[in-house]
Design a protein around this nucleic acid. Structure first.
Lengths: 189, 189, 189, 189
DNA sequence: AATGAATGAGAATTCATTCAT
DNA sequence: CATGAATGAATTCTCATTCAT
């Protein structure tokens, strides 16, 4: 792992532990096993690491989706797998994912958000497109826009389960079931 | 307006202007027309104002929804008004709303999120319930869970339009239209 | 107990608990059961309470000495009782007595020290005087100066035992025994 | 001189000038010719410099004693020189020495006191031991305990002269004379 | 490229003190 | 006399950033 990757990894860990506000460059450097000054050779500031972290998370989303969602399956199963993928990654990165919003929002990095999410949007849009061609989803959808709605919907549902409320197995199951029905009705022809 | 409310109001304004990171307690105090020290009589830190701000925003959501959404209207119109309400408030608070995530996430305030949103969830759940009784939405929905999904969906769509991408009128219109269709299909019987 | 006495008492307790540096006027006021502002009706500052506290301690010394030292006893017994008296009070006020030095020294109250100790010096000087007249102590002593030496010697010995070292029963006994022999040799004819 | 020593030296000077209470970290840093922040690389707080200062003073005591007290001299002369040494150093550090009590007492540094004084106690104990072997002091003394008594006695006498009362040449001479006679009687065979 | 001691601007926070009630 | 909310001057302390090695 090169130093840049080490820094990104260390940042994720320290942000998880302490939160962004309380994290010092020194903490990141120490966790990464480098000197303070070295940090600046790779990133100009604490928050500038955020986009790299966000990319990591989006990459995780994509890997998981590509690994589990099969275009050959019936719509319901695909949606099930898509939801599972996003729920799993959100759970894994529960501590950082919200920080990402913070990190990107408190600076001028806001615009990078769209760029970072684009590959994920594209991936889901293409899934929708294919399903649309196979007439598994209604003809009236616009894959690009609907992809964003679908991802936003699933992410927010996952965040409600894993971040904003005390975790509860039953609640997770109910929320997921309701979400799936909701999605199916929204998309099916 | 008592001093606590004044501080909350001033915080919203200053956060909008400068962002959280750049905001000094001194700025808030000045805007609120009080001395630095007085701030600490009401809040222990900058971030501890966040939950109060979040409550304000949720209150705005509720006021707007109650003012515009009429249970007497057909579903499509109700959804249209609900979406408009949430889009409008999100736009108005575009600069603070994401910062709220930051503020609530960096501290131990996470759990307050659910509490703060509860009245809004309840309001929308009750709307769904009534429509369900009138058979305007499908019988299979669970109003409580679906309310969360609906709010999460609309909020995330609004954030995508107003926060994460360069604002674009056409895009806003398309996203809204697609969102409405999506919602109608998801909810209708 | 009037309010002034209450404040002095409260100050002693708070200084014991927190030390001078960390004690706020607010702490003293709270412990005394009065409002912040009321403190200022009786004392102009935190440190100005010090002389009153010092007077308290000196009063304790005098009471104990007067209660236990009998001029009728042989010198050895008198010294024994004098040492015990000073050791006891020093132990009781172990936490404040050093703070007194601090409190009196950090301000312009230094000169009050002599005044506060004068009655104690006088008391011991008069003891020495009487013993000198009875030829129990050597004729060459000057009661006034020797009183100061005696008190300084016993106090410093007591402080070494109770304040500056980990307390140890055996050590206390040895130090006292050595001190008594030392004093006897220094004073006897 | 390394930076730590520079800070200790600067602290002594500034404390002498202004007293502890009125001394700002900034003052010490400036006198030491370093930046504010650098201070914190060496000491966590203003008071934590105290033990290092106390060590300095004890070192001065020892240097002065070793330079002036000759074991070859008769007891009276040795005591004279010992008293002079301690009086001189106490006078020189009159403004800091009492502050040291304050500094060490307000914190958890109390126990360090014994450690810091140990070399001085040992030095005087060894002087007593030698004199005892030469039968210049009475056989019944315990050098270790008596060393503490002797130092405590001389120090307190010096403090009475230089710190707690208005300085007065005649008084100083009388006190010293009385002290010497007192010591001789206490120690001689 | 890497280091980490030194810097010092800048902010948070405290708390003695006031004064209208 | 007593109160305690409000004040804001004053200081501590932090930590991003630099730069000589």
């Amino acid at each position: 792992m090169d130093k840049k990757a080490k820094i990104v990894q260390a940042s994720i860990e320290v942000f998880k532990e302490k939160g962004i506000e309380k994290t010092k460059i020194a903490d990141i450097a120490q966790k990464a096993g480098i000197a303070h000054g070295t940090f600046y050779l790779y990133f100009p500031s604490k928050l500038s690491v955020m986009p790299a972290i966000a990319e990591q998370i989006v990459l995780q989303f994509m890997n998981k989706i590509e690994a589990t969602v099969s275009i050959e399956d019936p719509l319901q199963k695909q949606l099930n797998q898509l939801v599972d993928a996003i729920f799993q990654v959100t759970e894994e990165f529960r501590d950082v994912s919200v920080l990402i919003y913070a990190g990107l929002s408190t600076t001028a990095h806001m615009s990078q958000w769209e760029t970072i999410y684009t590959p994920l949007y594209d991936l889901v849009a293409s899934l929708l497109e294919t399903n649309k061609n196979r007439q598994l989803v209604r003809e009236t959808i616009d894959p690009a826009h609907t992809a964003k709605l679908v991802i936003g919907l699933i992410e927010s549902a996952a965040e409600q389960v894993y971040l904003y409320a005390a975790y509860n197995v039953q609640n997770e199951a109910n929320q997921k079931a309701e979400l799936l029905t909701f999605l199916e009705h929204a998309l099916r022809p």
